[in-house]
Simulated scan of single mutants.
Amino acid sequence: MATAAQKPLTGAKVFLMLVAFFGLVIGVNVTMMKLAIATLPGTEVDSAYSASLAYEKEIMAAREQAARKWQVEARIQRQGDGGAVVQLEARDANGRPMTGLTFKGTLERPIDKRADLPVELSEVGIGIYRGSASAVAPGQWDLVIEADARGQRMFQSRNRVILN
């Protein structure tokens, strides 16, 4: 029987196979690294040290907010055009509607801060504040509400909502 002549495995062939293998591995790693960096949403805070220094102020603000015993009820409703309407009803500790506050709202994406959407809230009735955001993608959002009075933050809440 005649057998086909086999080509010998030389050092040059082994070297080229190694170069090709590691070239492929390095190429895939570089591509994955570039994709990961391009899609990185960033950090939650720029400086953990600065955030830790402000933490004591946040604790005091939360205690003051709890002492006020405000009742702020928020509702969010999906619109047919892809937007969302946020409505707040604010009452004091005695259940009376509160007027004259400045509410700010934000729909924050838990996984990508670049997708956050501001919600401009204005008073539409006694103690009722309403605002809307357009082009709200479906999924999980954090509804962050802040109320200011006389230039000082008086209320803050963060609630996870799911919009379909």
Results as ranks from 00 to 15, higher is better:
Gln87Gly: 01
Arg78His: 07
Ser47Cys: 15
Ser122Pro: 00
Arg114Cys: 12
Lys113Met: 14
Val72Gly: 14
Thr106Lys: 10
Thr102Phe: 04
Ala93Arg: 03
Glu44Thr: 11
Lys69Tyr: 06
Gly105Met: 02
Gly95Cys: 11
Phe103Lys: 01
Gly105Ala: 06
Trp70Asn: 12
Ala51Asn: 11
Ala115Arg: 15
Ser52Asn: 13
Ile126Cys: 01
Thr102Leu: 01
Ile128Tyr: 10
Leu53Asp: 11
Ala62Trp: 06
Ser50Asn: 07
Thr102Arg: 03
Ser52His: 06
Glu58Trp: 10
Ser122Ile: 00
Ala90Trp: 02
Lys69Glu: 07
Asp116Lys: 13
Val85Trp: 02
Arg96Ser: 10
Pro97Phe: 09
Glu123Trp: 03
Ser132Lys: 01
Arg75Asn: 09
Pro118Trp: 03
Gln87Asp: 04
Gly83His: 06
Lys57Ala: 09
Gly80Trp: 03
Val124Thr: 04
Ala62Pro: 12
Gln71His: 12
Ala90Tyr: 06
Glu56Gln: 13
Arg63Met: 12
Asp116Asn: 09
Ala74Lys: 06
Val124Pro: 05
Ala62Val: 07
Pro118Val: 12
Pro97Asn: 04
Ile128Ala: 09
Ile76Ala: 04
Val72Ala: 11
Ser47Arg: 11
Ile76Thr: 14
Ile128His: 03
Gly127Tyr: 05
Ile111Pro: 15
Thr102Ile: 04
Val45Tyr: 05
Leu117Tyr: 14
Asp46Val: 14
Leu117Asn: 11
Gly80Asp: 02
Arg78Glu: 13
Gly83Leu: 03
Arg78Tyr: 12
Ile128Asp: 00
Glu73Ile: 11
Lys113Val: 13
Tyr55Gly: 06
Trp70Ala: 02
Met98Thr: 10
Ser47Trp: 13
Ala54His: 04
Gly131Ala: 05
Arg109Gln: 15
Glu64Tyr: 01
Ala61Cys: 03
Gly127Asp: 05
Ala84Pro: 07
Asp116Ala: 15
Val119Asn: 03
Thr99Leu: 08
Ile128Glu: 04
Ala133Pro: 09
Leu121His: 00
Leu88Trp: 00
Gly131Phe: 01
Gly83Glu: 01
Arg91Lys: 09
Leu121Gln: 00
Ser50Arg: 08
Ala51Lys: 04
Glu58Ile: 06
Gln77Phe: 08
Asp81Arg: 00
Tyr49Lys: 12
Asp92Gly: 14
Tyr129Gly: 02
Asp112Arg: 14
Glu120Ser: 09
Gln79Leu: 03
Arg63Thr: 15
Thr106Ile: 11
Pro110Gly: 13
Ala61Gly: 06
Ser47Val: 12
Asp112Ile: 15
Ala133His: 10
Ala74Glu: 05
Ile128Ser: 09
Gln87His: 10
Asp81Thr: 00
Gly83Asp: 01
Ser132Cys: 02
Asp46Arg: 14
Ile128Cys: 04
Glu73Tyr: 13
Arg91His: 13
Glu123Gly: 02
Ile111Val: 15
Gln65Glu: 06
Ala54Trp: 08
Gln79Met: 08
Ala84Cys: 08
Asp116Arg: 12
Glu120Thr: 04
Gln65Cys: 02
Tyr55Cys: 15
Val124Cys: 05
Ala54Gln: 09
Ile126Tyr: 12
Gly127Trp: 03
Phe103Ser: 01
Gly100Met: 01
Ser132Asp: 01
Pro97His: 10
